[in-house]
Structure formats: structure tokens, C-alpha cells
Design a protein around this nucleic acid. Sequence first.
DNA 1: TGACTACTATGACGAGTGTCATAGTAGTGA
DNA 2: TCACTACTATGACACTCGTCATAGTAGTCA
Lengths: 198, 198
Amino acid sequence: MSSDTRGPRDRMVYATAQHLRRAGVSGTGLRQVVIDADAPRGSLQHYFPGGKDQLVAEALDWAGTWAAARVGEHLSRMRRPTPSRLFTAVVDDWAADLDAREFARGCPVAAAVVDCADTNETVRRAADTALETWRRPLAEALVDMGRSRRRADSLSTLMLCALEGAILMARARRDTAPLRLVARELAPVLDAPPGAQR
Amino acid sequence: MSSDTRGPRDRMVYATAQHLRRAGVSGTGLRQVVIDADAPRGSLQHYFPGGKDQLVAEALDWAGTWAAARVGEHLSRMRRPTPSRLFTAVVDDWAADLDAREFARGCPVAAAVVDCADTNETVRRAADTALETWRRPLAEALVDMGRSRRRADSLSTLMLCALEGAILMARARRDTAPLRLVARELAPVLDAPPGAQR
DNA sequence: TGACTACTATGACGAGTGTCATAGTAGTGA
DNA sequence: TCACTACTATGACACTCGTCATAGTAGTCA
């Protein structure tokens, strides 16, 4: 995740995503992003003629893609994957991140939704597709585990809802317990045999 | 919920809470709050010498208390309350609100956490206690329904996590489906007979 | 060498921010 | 009438914000 090798453009997108996680959209200043990215300020209007909206949108896009890839990594590490094991892996990943950074950074998509859902349609759309980019590999994995398409869509959405909420509560309480809690409580729902539930 | 009868102080707190729901903490300007509240600007420093932090903290406090009272209202309307029925009532409440306001307003506590968890300890604490104020009546109700204290704490936390996440996703998608989904999926977990689960 | 493109540097603009200082008004109780 | 308190009015300060205009540099083709 070191950002030295990539070009300044990518570094700015990455720095924006990280800043979103800490302070939300309106709390993210472009000047600070440029500093964090160790990028030239003049490049902002060159690479992102669409202004802050474009930068934030690309940061969300990056975040969605990254999260999706992370799901793949978790899956590839599992001998016999089950829905609950997958969910637990994702949740544990977040718990470790929150712990390591002392709850400083949450989910950038959540930040975008909270700040912009009503005021900035560009960003809202980007957040929406980022969530979808993240959810899709979860659903695919569930299908591979024998769930129907419909069921996989439902369960993957449930996973993301519970995770986002748990991240939120964990940051409020400064305690990762909610994350572990949702992983434990959802296990029976997620692992219910394919035919048993609607 | 009309704000004409209350004093300017209360109106400012209320207006702040509503503004938080739309644009987050950093997106909430004090001058706009004053206008929305139809309050004198000079009263800001008089009633809230602690500045914006105090105002936001009180708004979160108000929101937590309001949400808790709402739980009570739902319960009082139920002949034979069950955990899943209670959760569904809360969720439906939110779905109706989101629909009515076209997804413009989310949860003020979520907004505070996302924007301030890392940068503003005062607000973070206020968000934490607001969540707790909200969760407590849920847990109490679950105890009344025969769940153990431990179990009630777990389930009430699960409810709030799923709800907060579903609100988030609903606003991103501009669709209340995630809310209805979590209510449906969590029902078996919530209604599992007291002794059946850990 | 010269034109052309990609990228960077920098200063400024106007608007908005939270906060504060200062002065004013209305009402109450002595 | 006087003092005192509660509350309001308003202008200013010192920022920060996103955006833009303009100029400059480096590199690449012809």
C-alpha cells in the first residue's frame, strides 16, 4: 500500500480515499490531500478537471475496487469457505484495521453517503456503485457455495449492512466488539442450508 | 414536531440535528442553523458558549432521546410484541421517513461518527451515549420478552448495527429495500426462543 | 531549432467558516 | 429610579475552502 511508486494522480486518489475515511467529504480539504499525496498542487486541475467531485468519485471507485479485491484474497485463503467464514474474515479484517489505527478511519463510502447523499448526486452515484462493486464478489462467492442468485443477493446485502453499521458503532464506542458480535449473530442466517430458507 | 412553541434554544438544537442528518457535521453551518431555527444569531454564543461542539453534542443528545422515546411508542402500540416485530416497526419507521423525504436525511449519529470520530472527542462521546440511549429501551423490551440481559444486549446491538447500515445503503441506492431486507433476514435470529441460542 | 503537448508552480478571488467583542434592549426586583 | 440579569444585534477577525488564471518547465516529435 505504499504510494511511492505510483504516479501523482493515483497517489492523490488514494490520499483522498484515506482522508475521506477520517473526516468525511466536507472535512477533506484539497490542499491537505495534495500534501498527503506528496503531489504538486497544480496537478489537481490537470488530472481532475471535474474538481473535488471527480476526485472524491474516483476515490470511492478505488475503494470499491480495493474492497472487492480484498474479498477475493480472503476467499483464496480458505480451504472450505462458508458464508459465515467469509463474513467473519471480512469483519476481522476491519476490526484489525480499526484497532491498528485506533478507530481513526472508517469506511469512505459511508462517509460519502452521510455527507453527500442529499447534496451531491455525482458523489452519491459513485458511492452507490462502489457498494455494488464491493457486494458483487460477495454474492458470487455465495453462489459458488450453493446459494441461489436471489439468496446470494440478499445475504451479501445483509453482510454489508451489518458490517457498515458495526463499523459505525465500533468507532463510536472505540471498541471492536460490535464487529465480532454481528459476525457471530449472523452466522446461522448466513450458513442456513440453501433450501431451508426462502 | 412543529418548532414554534419551543424556545429559540430548543429550536436551534432541533435544527442542528436535522441539518446533521442532511450534510454531516462539517457540512452544517451555524449561520444556516440559526436561519432554519428562526432564532437570533446572537443567542448562539449565549446559549452555547461551548460553540459548535456543544451545539452538535446537544443535538445528538436530543436525537438519542427522541429515538428512545420512539421505541416506547412502537411498543405501546403492540398487542403481543416480539423482537422481530419491534425491529420491523423501527425499520419501517425509518423507511417511511426516508421515502417521505426522498432519502435526504439519514441518522444524525452516523453523521457525527463518520465526521468526528477521529477529530473531535466531544462529539464522538456524544454520539456514543446517544447510541446507548437509543439501544437501552430496545434491550429493556427484549428482557421483557423473556431474553436474558446478555442476550438482550447482543440483540439490541445487532438491531442498531443492521439498521444503521441499512439506512446507509438505502440512501446510497435511493431505495428502501435494504431496510426491509434486514428486518426480514434478522427475524429468525431475533425471535429464536430464549434458551435455544447461547 | 521550433512547435506542440504534458505537467507543474503560484498567486489570487470570492465565498463561507467558527468565533469573538461590543453594544443594545427588555424585563425584574429593590 | 437604579442596578442587575437575560437575551439579542451586528460587525469584524482570521482563517479555510474550491476554483481559476496565468505563467513556467520538461519532454517529444518533426
